[in-house]
Every structure is written in C-alpha cells, then in structure tokens.
C-alpha cells in the first residue's frame, strides 16, 4: 500500500478534499469515499460510459482518471445535474420518453448528453448518435434515449 495523497477539488460546485492512494481511480474515490454512487462501474476500462463525469468542462470516463488527477479540477457528476425538485430538462425528458429500463446506464447517458448539449445545443440525430456511441445501454436499444436527448435540445 502506498502513501495516500491529499487532493483538493470542486465537486458539483462544492469544495471537496480527499485522501486517496495514487492507484485509486476517480470513480473509486467518488463511489467508495465520497458517497457519490450515481456514477456506475460497467467495465472499469473506458468502454461503457456508465462512470462518465464532466471534468473541467470535458466529458471523461471517471474509471480512466486517477483520483490524484482531479486535483484542482471542477467535477460535475450526475448528482450535480439536477434533483428531484429541480430536474434538468434531460432528466425530465428521459422520464417522459421512458428512456430507461434498468437505469444503470442512465446517469452516464445523462452526463454525456449534458456535455453534448453544453457544446452543441442543437445536435442532429446523427450527432447525438455519434456523441453517445461511448455509452452502452443493453436494455433499451437506444431508440428512446436518442429521442429524449433530441427532445431536450434548445428550441426543440
């Protein structure tokens, strides 16, 4: 076991300090130490997107980022995107379109889609499909997910 490192970050707008081993991924830290279990582990090697978070404005697989790399960064997780009382339009559209079945992929999809809409508020279906190709869903066949994202666009 190696010595733990002190890391200072901002998570969902709040300053957060934590200690982690250099080998801990950001996903592990979020889930096991910071009680942010909204990010899910589907593969732990960058292939499913269930763990996605936004780090300094960039969409990342948190399983492929080390906890120590988050030092000085601003991180947005699913917990910071909306709440029951104040759902983000994407969350509302996912509900209306029944864009989830088991729901394990849903936080990752919503975070990814938010990153897309932040960058391109009015994507085409092709652009949505291209952007979301890094997120796997095994339940829905993606149809309702793509529709929900299209419906959450500005001016849609």
């Amino acid at each position: 076991m190696s010595k733990k490192v002190h890391v200072q970050t901002t998570i969902n707008g709040e300053a957060v300090d934590f200690l982690c081993e250099p080998r801990n991924s950001l996903l592990e830290v979020l889930r096991d130490d910071l009680d942010h279990t909204g990010a899910k582990e589907g593969c732990n090697n960058g292939n499913c997107g269930a763990c996605n978070v936004i780090m300094d404005g960039r969409l990342v697989n948190s399983c492929c980022v080390l906890g120590v790399e988050a030092d000085g960064c601003e991180i947005t997780t699913i917990e910071g995107i909306g709440s029951a009382a104040n759902l983000h339009p994407l969350q509302q559209k996912f509900l209306e379109h029944a864009a989830l079945q088991c729901g394990i992929c849903t936080p990752g999809f919503i975070v990814s889609a938010k990153a897309l809409l932040d960058e391109n508020p009015n994507p085409t279906e092709d652009e949505v499909r291209y952007w979301l190709a890094g997120n796997l869903c095994r339940c829905t066949g993606y149809d309702k997910i793509v529709r929900a994202v299209l419906d959450a666009r500005n001016g849609a």
Partner: peptide, 20 residues
C-alpha cells in the same frame, strides 16, 4: 412516469454495488 424514475435519473437509486 414510472415510480422509481426520478431516483434513477438523478443517480440516487441504490444498486447492488452502491451499498455501504
């Protein structure tokens, strides 16, 4: 809208691996 939907779109739903 499904009853468990809000918990699932906000990341609050507790799946097997989430338990502490």
């Amino acid at each position: 809208i499904r009853h468990d939907g809000v918990d699932k779109v906000t990341g609050r739903a507790i799946y097997g691996a989430d338990i502490q």
